[in-house]
Design a protein around this nucleic acid. Structure first.
Lengths: 177, 177
DNA sequence: TAACCTATAGTCTCACTGAGACGGTATCGA
DNA sequence: TCGATACCGTCTCAGTGAGACTATAGGTTA
């Protein structure tokens, strides 16, 4: 767990390893479809990490040949090795959740049942939306993609995760009604 | 959702509202038993937030009368009002999760099945520990405490949450074995 | 061909946070 | 009275988050 790099940096390495050389903007697009649900990365970070990784010799930077001459980052052998070392390590720092709604729920003894019910309904709706979005993405997966197996697993986990919260908040809404 | 304060500041207000005047150190103790699972707060933050809230007139600061003369923070009427406004608002910013293990799983097509299995076993064990810890806390709850109702709910949610991940990783471990 | 529009792409800044090293203070046993 | 240990609090500094801001490309219209 002596991590050489930050998680977002490994994401950059991983995406480039899988999909080939990319610009920060392309990285941003990839992340929006996948990783952001369990590791949010603000877009500005994707302009900070690749140059840093290039300094470390894990990526190399080249300019596009035509047009805008955007900065395209390529994986080096050292980068591929760093990525595989990370993947081979079964440990990782513990998951963290930040859920403001649960914070409010913590103090429900200071609030009214009506307020709790309103909170619960809002949250149930939100988690239902997430679950539906995941189901949609699952249906849209391209079976030819080499990453489909892991995507499927992650989406199924996401659906069960969200459904768990839907059930929780719906029950609570019913009880507080 | 136009939040006047940060979530951690509302936690400070809430804990003082429920338990009476507290020092930053006492806040730290309270948070370790409850809130840190869905809203981690580094301890140094608990020395930064209360003075800030005092500047805003939401807390007042007094020194202990004896001994170490620690800084004890009391809730003001304005503080109580701010807390209730927050509790009465059913919206909140969306939950965020940061789970490095899922990040590794994202790139399993670049790893070996043995590595995936090792990761899965490690993660299953970790989540099982969390689930057990929650079950223990649930058993230890003091029914006389006014916050028991919300604590029970939150712990039950936590148990289901962790169990979900235990199941996920165990299945994956079995498949990759 | 200039003016404009929209999507695309990237930069910048600033307050804040996270992590943990570090420093003091009370308590207690030997 | 010394040292050990737990308790308590401060400090620092790189890194992050949020989003305003700037810039470029490729149309479309006039």
């Amino acid at each position: 767990m002596t991590d050489e790099l930050t998680p977002s940096q490994y994401v950059v390495l991983g995406l480039i390893a899988r999909n080939g050389p990319m610009t920060p903007y392309e990285l941003k697009g990839r992340i929006e479809q996948s990783v952001e649900n369990y590791w949010p990365i603000p877009h500005a970070q994707l302009y900070r990490d690749p140059p840093r990784l290039a300094e470390l010799g894990l990526l190399t930077e080249r300019a596009e040949e035509h047009g805008r001459r955007r900065r395209v980052f390529h994986l080096t052998d050292a980068g591929r090795e760093a990525l595989h070392r990370w993947l081979a390590d079964p440990t990782s720092s513990p998951p963290e959740t930040r859920n403001p709604a649960l914070l409010k729920l913590t103090f429900t003894d200071l609030a009214s049942p009506a307020e709790v019910a309103a909170l619960a309904r809002t949250q149930a709706a939100r988690h239902r939306q997430w679950a539906d979005a995941y189901r949609q993405r699952l249906a849209d997966l391209d079976p030819a993609d080499p990453a489909t197996a892991s995507r499927t697993r992650l989406l199924e986990l996401g659906i069960r995760h969200e459904q768990n919260y839907v059930d929780f908040w719906e029950t609570l809404a019913a009880e507080s009604a």
